[in-house]
Write a protein that binds this DNA or RNA. Structure first.
Length: 203
DNA sequence: AATGGTCACAACCGCCAGTTC
DNA sequence: GGAACTGGCGGTTGTGACCAT
């Protein structure tokens, strides 16, 4: 494998490489990315192949400018999740984490006057609330821990949001607060769908 | 037309967590 | 238990396009 890594080509992909990668994925499916250079002869690392497929070649990936709806969604999700680009992208059909990240960095952070440094590592501890957790296993649920760090980058915006919705989130945001873990799933659970979701997205 | 600055975005890097042996 | 491997994530960089001078 080292040999492949060492002779890996870098930089932009060409049409031929795209074609080789696309054919491989069509035939074998995704996963086992490190096999691709060996099997196809592509002079790219497995990671590079994965990235190229995920961000560009996947059939359902949407190209072009973000719509106003998408932009609005990114802003709202970012205020909730911080720089969790993969989570944000997961809620925006056809958009990848890289697209969302680039869009934020080039458009929205400028537009909203976000200070990048401010967003980093505002550590908050959340408590697991038995019974509140909705369907769907979460890492917190599985861990069985009473308290666990669940998010390292809750932004100031979320703190403000929390204060505005204290019926949903508790009011002691100084260092810890109780918070349904399913919020991580961005309110697709019954609990959140009925409460947090409506409150939050009605902002 | 040439040059320099800025912008947008694709791709890379380093780190971490999960899995396998 | 731990080393090696693999995939995923967020941050950063490199490059081409565009614009102003």
């Amino acid at each position: 494998m080292e040999a492949y890594e060492n002779e890996s080509k870098k930089g932009f992909w060409n049409a031929e490489e795209d074609s080789v990668l696309t054919n491989y994925v069509k035939k074998h499916g995704t996963g086992k990315w490190n096999r691709i250079p060996k099997v196809t002869g592509l002079k790219r690392s497995g990671k590079s192949c994965r990235l190229r497929w995920m961000n560009y070649l996947t059939p359902d990936v949407k190209r072009g400018d973000f719509s106003e709806e998408e932009e609005d969604l990114v802003v709202r999700l970012h205020s909730l999740l911080g720089n969790r680009w993969s989570l944000i992208a997961g809620r925006i059909p056809g958009r990848t984490d890289n697209q969302v990240k680039n869009f934020w960095n080039t458009h929205l952070s400028k537009k909203l006057g976000v200070d990048k440094k401010r967003k980093r590592k505002a550590c908050v501890t959340a408590k697991y609330i038995p019974g509140v957790e909705a369907e769907g296993a979460s890492s917190m649920e599985r861990s069985g821990e009473g308290e666990k760090l669940v998010h390292e980058s809750w932004s100031d915006d979320l703190m403000e949001l929390g204060n505005m919705h204290e019926g949903i989130m508790r009011d002691d945001f100084g260092c810890s607060f109780s918070f349904p873990n399913s919020v991580f799933d961005l309110c697709t659970s019954p609990y959140c769908t009925q409460s947090f979701h409506h409150s939050f997205f009605a902002l």
